[in-house]
Design a binder for these strands. Structure first.
Length: 889
DNA sequence: TAGCTCACG
DNA sequence: ACGTACGTGAGCTAA
């Protein structure tokens, strides 16, 4: 086993910690008012590193002062930086104390930066056969990576790091650690305030170094480059490039007065740590050390919880639980397709059991109980539990009460995703929230104490049991029991199987598209820099605003809270004023595709080559689903460039097809139904093109007179507007007409569709009177703002009152279809699988020979899901990929 | 973490 | 006069 060396860039990590904890800065002060957030963050980072890397030697290097050999060579080095805020600088002495108390050495060297100390020691480590880990908040240190030295750069927060090895750098950046120095030489460094060569940024610098191998070789062949501004700049600024190279290069031979033998890691010094924690008022760290001085969150009723730790030996006790149990399986993370099981609890009445040992679940007695349909299960978030257990080859059966679903139906806007939080909203206090017990963000950690942890899991199952009857009573009082029993509960199972089925995604297709996009992005980037006359971060709206509106003096059409708006709407108005605008629009479009859809999707393809999204069944205020990790409900389709992403979504088996069916104008049909408007209903019953029919009416066309495309477009916008809770301003903005004209459209609409006009008025009244609105299935949304004094807030609630029954009823309809679908597919012995739901559309994969059957069956199930006063219409498509779908008739 | 931007229905 | 379309999720920047 090689010895291990840990080298930490003290200044940069403390600085990162300071910013990571910045929002909580005021919470972190000790008795004397000393700020401690950065010290705290630094310790979190340290613990995290030490949990994964057990060093034999360790050193934290600090910068010695403002002036170094670099500032002597280049006066402006690190110039222009803001003064370190006193809230941060006062923490450094304590960080050093902390380092010492943790049994590590710290070191600084006059005229040198921490980097150089680290570079020098890392080299010594390599030569002495150490495995070295360098930790920094600064990417520059990646130049120190070797086969035996890894550089961990802090990402988000403090504890998340990105590990740079030479291989990783080559893959990610395309250059070796040594070449990275030359890249910096060309591109410069804005934060260290050295310039690099004019007009060369990171992308160009990397490309040049990739092409030429090194700065030296580039200059050896610079004359052969084709004539360009870039070539001129390179030649003119050769001296600058070399000066920057010198500044960028971390020294590996700094005259340090210590050696590896001097930095042996001693391990934590308990007494010193306790004293320091007390001085800093770090209660949670003190608590972990068990000094008795801690102030844990009050345990409310969790202290009273009586339970037994379940083991192989006492499993037989479960047989006595009878035919109803509450059960909970604790996940390591929210994504249950990836999470591990951290523990579970089960029981009823006064018999409660819990364990951290997930393997017990698969043993005979428990597995049997879980799969036994006659034992009713009460739980929290059935879908998560189904998937977690399915991954253990256990098919959870007999689900009866899902606390999360029930609570969501009672009030969809509560948004409690945690048993404790949710219980508190129902006035049940005998449980802590996960956040109280585990912490959140960087500090989240399951309790090490088994009793504390298991007691919490038992508190969860007890909350489920105790809330079951009261919530059922409330659902029944609200006439929501059928909604729970016949729609949401069965739907959770359907969603679980769709998620587990997953959709196959061809990574190669995405990668190929990605490299083309990156190429185009690079081109656009250079052109934009040319047009702007300087380099800047195009992704930064702030910097872009400065370029467009200050430098290029374009007219700022709109402002946001924080500055100029640079949204598409604004940029489109500026087309023609400057060539840069169109390039920025294209850049934006491609950058979005590349980062969100190419890189984003590639990150979430599972080893089975599929993407397994999670549908959130209890999130939206209206009853729709949402989709996360990744969101498969917003894959591009409107523009061809983006739509091509869908080529990567393919059937999972050869000879299969993608089949899709979507409701046509479902929200307007629901509108026709709930408003009872005669004209709107007639238009649908007559099978009219609804937007054209609306146009005929609001523009008062004569029979036989043609609806021109512009009229239809405007009528379509009016229809949308109605569904959204219309305002003349919004409509005017959308279709680029005057507010007066929009107002006239709306007036004409309400005259032609008086039932809709009446509904709009009445629904707001209903909301005022009863405080909530409902969908067709009695899905409820409370609107406390409906009586607000502020015009704005009240108007919003009024539009919501209008929109929610429409959007929500449409959601009800497709949910019913989704529950019926697997049953109907099974009846016909079809292999077809339902994979995705996108609000009004269902996507399937199926063997080619089943397509004719599906084309009949799926629309039938969908259009008969609910009987409305108007027919439901379903359109179907089929193709080899999600991109290639062609309409069937 | 908030704010902006942009992808979808 | 107010200052707006409804419902979502994700990536990025700035601090």
């Amino acid at each position: 086993m090689p010895k291990k060396l840990l080298l930490i860039d003290g200044n940069s990590v403390v600085f990162r910690a300071f910013f990571a904890m910045h929002t909580q800065m005021e919470r972190f002060t000790n008795q004397e008012g000393l700020h401690t957030a950065a010290i705290y963050g630094f310790k979190l980072m340290l613990d995290h590193i030490l949990a994964n890397f057990e060093p034999d030697a360790a050193l934290v290097a600090f910068d010695a002062g403002k002036t170094t050999f670099r500032t002597k060579k280049f006066e402006d080095y690190k110039g222009g930086r803001d003064k370190t805020p006193s809230e941060l600088s006062e923490q450094f002495p304590y960080v050093r104390k902390l380092v010492e108390a943790c049994g590590m050495h710290s070191y600084e060297l006059k005229d040198y930066e921490a980097d150089d100390i680290i570079g020098t020691l890392a080299k010594q480590g390599d030569e002495a056969g150490y495995e070295t880990l360098i930790v920094s908040g600064d990417r520059d240190l990646t130049q120190l990576a070797t086969d035996h030295t890894t550089v961990a750069v802090t990402k988000k927060g403090v504890t998340q790091t990105e590990h740079f090895t030479p291989a990783y750098m080559l893959k990610k950046l395309g250059v070796t650690p040594t070449q990275f120095i030359d890249v910096k030489a060309l591109m410069g460094d804005t934060s260290d305030n050295y310039p690099g060569v004019t007009k060369i940024g990171e992308k160009t610098a990397i490309n040049l170094i990739k092409e030429y191998g090194s700065l030296d070789n580039l200059y050896a062949h610079v004359d052969e480059m084709k004539k360009s501004k870039r070539k001129e700049n390179l030649i003119n600024e050769k001296a600058i490039a070399y000066q920057c190279q010198d500044l960028a290069r971390i020294r590996r031979d700094a005259p340090i007065a210590i050696s590896l033998a001097d930095v042996i890691y001693q391990g934590p010094q308990t007494d010193a740590l306790v004293a320091l924690y007390q001085e800093l008022n770090f209660k949670s760290f003190l608590a972990k050390m068990g000094t008795g001085d801690e102030e844990l969150p009050t345990q409310t009723g969790e202290d009273e919880v009586k339970f037994q730790v379940l083991t192989k030996e006492n499993l037989s006790a479960l047989a006595k639980l009878g035919d109803r149990v509450a059960i909970h399986i604790e996940q390591s993370e929210a994504n249950y397709h990836l999470a591990t099981i951290k523990g579970f609890a089960i029981g009823n009445g006064d018999q409660w059991y819990a364990s951290r040992d997930a393997s017990l679940l698969t043993t005979g007695p428990i597995k049997h109980l879980l799969e036994n349909n006659h034992v009713k299960k009460d739980l929290f978030n059935a879908k998560a539990q189904i998937v977690m257990l399915h991954r253990q080859k256990i098919e959870l059966s007999g689900i009866d009460f899902d606390l999360l679903l029930a609570s969501y139906l009672l009030n969809p806007t509560l948004n409690a995703n945690d048993v404790g939080e949710l219980a508190h909203t129902h006035d049940y206090q005998e449980i802590l929230t996960d956040e109280d017990l585990y912490g959140k963000g960087v500090k989240r950690q399951l309790p090490e104490d088994e009793q504390v942890f298991l007691r919490h899991l038992v508190a969860k199952v007890q909350a489920v049991e105790n809330l079951r009857q009261p919530l059922i009573d409330q659902l029944q009082a609200n006439e929501q029991w059928p909604l729970y029993e016949e729609i949401e509960r069965p739907l959770s199972r359907v969603l679980a199987s769709m998620e587990m089925q997953g959709i196959k995604v061809n990574a190669k297709t995405l990668e190929e598209m990605g490299s083309k996009l990156v190429e185009r992005l690079n081109e656009l980037e250079s052109e934009i820099y040319q047009d702007a006359g300087q380099e800047f971060n195009i992704n930064s709206t702030k910097q872009l605003g400065v370029i467009l509106f200050d430098e290029l003096k374009l007219r700022p059409i709109k402002k946001t809270k924080t500055g100029y708006s640079t949204s598409v709407a604004v940029l489109e108005k500026l087309i023609g004023k400057h060539p840069i605008i169109e390039k920025i629009l294209e850049y934006r479009q491609i950058a979005k595709l590349q980062s969100t859809y190419i890189a984003g999707l590639l990150k979430v393809i599972h080893p089975d080559s599929k993407i397994h999204t999670r549908y959130l069944q209890t999130l939206t205020a209206t009853g729709r689903l949402s989709s996360v990790d990744p969101n498969l409900q917003n894959i591009p389709v409107r523009l061809e460039e983006g739509k091509r992403i869908r080529k990567a979504f393919v059937p999972s088996q050869p000879g299969w097809k993608i089949f899709s069916a979507d409701y046509s104008q479902v929200e307007l049909r629901v509108l026709a139904h709930v408003t009872g408007d005669h004209n709107l209903q007639q238009d649908f019953i007559n099978g009219e093109d609804i937007h054209a029919a609306t146009a005929r009416r609001i523009f008062h066309l004569l029979p036989g007179e043609k609806v021109d495309p512009n009229m239809r477009r405007q009528a379509k916008a009016v229809n949308f507007g109605i569904v959204y809770g219309i305002s003349d301003f919004g409509l005017a903005q959308n279709i680029h007409v005057s507010r007066k004209q929009a107002h006239d459209f709306i007036e004409a609409y309400f005259e032609e569709f008086p039932g809709v006009a009446k509904y709009v008025k009445e629904i707001v009244e209903v909301a005022r009177k009863q405080g909530y609105v409902e969908t067709i299935t009695h899905r409820r949304r409370y609107l406390p703002d409906i009586n607000a004094k502020s015009f704005n807030i009240r108007s919003f609630a009024e539009r919501t009152a209008m929109n929610t029954p429409i959007q929500g009823s449409a959601a009800d309809i497709i949910k019913i279809a989704m529950i019926k679908m697997p049953k109907e597919l099974a009846k016909q012995h079809l292999k077809a699988k339902m994979l995705l739901q996108i609000h009004d559309e269902l996507v399937f994969e199926a063997p080619e020979e089943e397509i004719p059957v599906l084309a009949e069956l799926v629309p039938k199930v969908m259009d008969s899901a609910m009987e409305l006063a108007v027919p439901l219409k379903v359109e179907k498509k089929v193709g080899d990929t999600w991109y290639d779908l062609k309409k069937l008739d």
